[in-house]
Computed example of a mutant assay.
Amino acid sequence: METSTREYLQKALSKNEFISYIAESNGEAISISGMVLFQRPPYLENLHGVEAYILNMYTIPEFRGKGLAKRMLKKCIDESRNSGVKRIWLHASKDGKHLYKKMGFTTKDSEMELFL
């Protein structure tokens, strides 16, 4: 798994198909996010088919409640807008749903989504 992930990230990062943000404190990662950009066939709400999937949003428990996840999510949304993304989607944890709703995501089946 580690080798496959490393190979994927090397390729995807070089093509700007995977974007990650990391917040650090004293040289240690305390909050992270990842986002995959991809092209799918067009549909009515997204005629260009460009989408983003947010994953691996995590903040170390002792740093929660300081706005780090919100800043990470905002960076993902801003990058999506700059990249022509029309739909961002994710699978939210119970703890994350409140933040995503505050940022405009809506629930659809087991996913949450935001159209830009």
Rank of each mutant, 00 (worst) to 15 (best):
S25F: 15
Q10C: 09
F115L: 14
K70D: 10
K86D: 11
G84D: 09
R71I: 07
A92W: 04
Y21S: 05
G84N: 08
F38D: 12
E17K: 05
H48R: 10
I54G: 00
E45H: 13
K11H: 06
L73Q: 06
F63D: 01
I22D: 10
I54A: 02
V50A: 08
K66G: 04
K11L: 09
R87V: 15
F105K: 07
F38G: 13
L55Y: 09
N82A: 13
P61S: 12
F115D: 03
H91Q: 07
G65Q: 06
N26I: 06
N26E: 15
V36G: 03
P41K: 03
R6F: 08
E62A: 09
E17N: 09
V36E: 14
E7M: 07
E7A: 12
V36C: 12
L9P: 01
G67Q: 04
E113W: 02
Q39N: 11
K11S: 07
L47H: 02
L37N: 05
S93A: 07
S110M: 11
K101I: 13
V85M: 06
L90V: 08
N16A: 08
K101W: 00
K86M: 14
Y8W: 07
H91A: 00
L68G: 02
K15M: 07
L73N: 02
G49L: 05
S33R: 01
E51I: 07
S20D: 00
M72C: 15
E79W: 00
S33Q: 00
V85F: 08
Q39E: 13
M103E: 15
L116I: 13
S25G: 04
Y43G: 03
A92Q: 04
S25K: 13
H98I: 08
S14D: 13
T59P: 03
D78V: 13
E17G: 11
R87G: 05
N16M: 11
T106K: 10
K70M: 09
M72F: 10
P41F: 14
T3C: 04
H91P: 00
I54P: 00
T3Q: 14
S83K: 14
A23V: 12
S31M: 04
N46R: 01
I22L: 12
E2T: 04
A29Y: 04
K101C: 09
H98F: 09
S110P: 00
F63S: 06
S25H: 14
G67P: 04
D78W: 03
R71Q: 12
N26Y: 06
S80W: 03
H91T: 09
L73C: 15
K70E: 15
Q10I: 03
